[in-house]
């Protein structure tokens, strides 16, 4: 067996876990963008980063055994993003026309909070970097197993319920806020909070937004194909980016994955437009 293959074997859990998680995030991202929730999701993600950093700081101060505190950052990230969600929903319902400025202010507040916490606990510097940029190579075996455990049911739920969920997204886009079902909100929160803690902010937002945004520039694929393509783009780019970063050690994994997602999604758009142009039926010209 070659050295490279042996290296890949080390990540036998990390790669499938990241692929499944990336697919789930990309499908959820399509719904979130359709519901005009992009900036709110950035706030939730930043809330999760803040929660993770605070809990790690506390663990450094008080915990005696590492094993006791293993799940605290994940739970704290989930709690913080949940609170950010509830707070942002409450305030936006009172001032819907100022939605974007409120979300941006909340995002800045949480980003500042994260940096202040890091300043209080200097040991958090590396955690802050990990929370933002992530690295699939540092995904622990336990985290990888939990990622699979979360991503699979979320994916199954979103595939089986694609019709009512799409209708919900359409109605939210049409009627404004306040139509997301509890199951959608909870699965989104759990997915995002865990992804931030285990895979980082950049990985999370790249998978959520890049495929659907680039694919949204074409009019033709249709709803189901859009979801499939979003998932497939992440499923292709994550192992590809990971493999390339292993082969070329100076290349960072997650930025490379995001870069590949843009490239592959653009290629898909180009292909769809080309096929659309080739198959377009000629218009009948009416003469007067």
């Amino acid at each position: 067996m070659t050295g490279f293959a042996q290296l890949l074997l080390l990540y036998a859990w990390s790669i499938p876990a990241a692929v499944l998680f990336g697919c789930a995030l990309s499908v959820v991202g399509a719904h979130l963008v359709a519901r005009n929730r992009e900036i709110q999701v950035l706030c939730l993600s930043q809330g999760a980063v803040f929660g993770v950093l605070v809990s790690i700081g506390m663990v450094h101060l008080f915990a005696t055994h590492a094993s006791e505190s293993r799940w605290i950052p994940s739970l704290s990230g989930l709690a913080a993003s949940g609170l950010t969600y509830l707070f942002s929903e409450w305030i936006v319902r009172r001032r819907p026309h100022r939605k974007n400025s409120i979300y941006v202010t909340l995002f800045i507040f949480l980003t500042t909070g994260g940096h202040l916490v890091t300043a209080l606990f200097p040991a958090l510097d590396s955690h802050l970097s990990q929370a933002y940029f992530g690295d699939l190579a540092t995904l622990t075996l336990d985290d990888a197993k939990v990622a699979v455990f979360i991503a699979v049911p979320v994916l199954v739920y979103f595939i089986r319920r694609w019709r009512p969920l799409t209708n919900e997204s359409f109605l939210t886009a049409f009627f404004g806020d306040g139509r997301s079902s509890l199951s959608f909100t909870l699965s989104t929160l759990v997915l995002i909070a865990f992804s931030i803690q285990a895979l980082g902010f950049l990985f999370t937002v790249a998978c959520l937004f890049i495929p659907t945004t680039v694919l949204g520039t074409v009019t033709q694929p249709g709803i189901r194909l859009h979801f499939w393509l979003c998932g497939i783009i992440s499923a292709v780019c994550i192992p590809l980016g990971f493999g390339l970063s292993l082969a070329f050690t100076r290349l960072p994994t997650v930025p490379l994955i995001a870069f590949l997602q843009v490239g592959v999604a653009l290629l898909v758009v180009l292909f769809v437009r080309l096929v659309g142009a080739l198959w377009k039926t000629p218009q009948t010209v009416k003469t007067i």
Partner: peptide, 14 residues
């Protein structure tokens, strides 16, 4: 404007 590319048929069907 609906972000997910869809046809009138899709919107009716969902």
């Amino acid at each position: 404007h609906f972000h997910i590319p869809s046809t009138l048929r899709d919107i009716i069907e969902v």
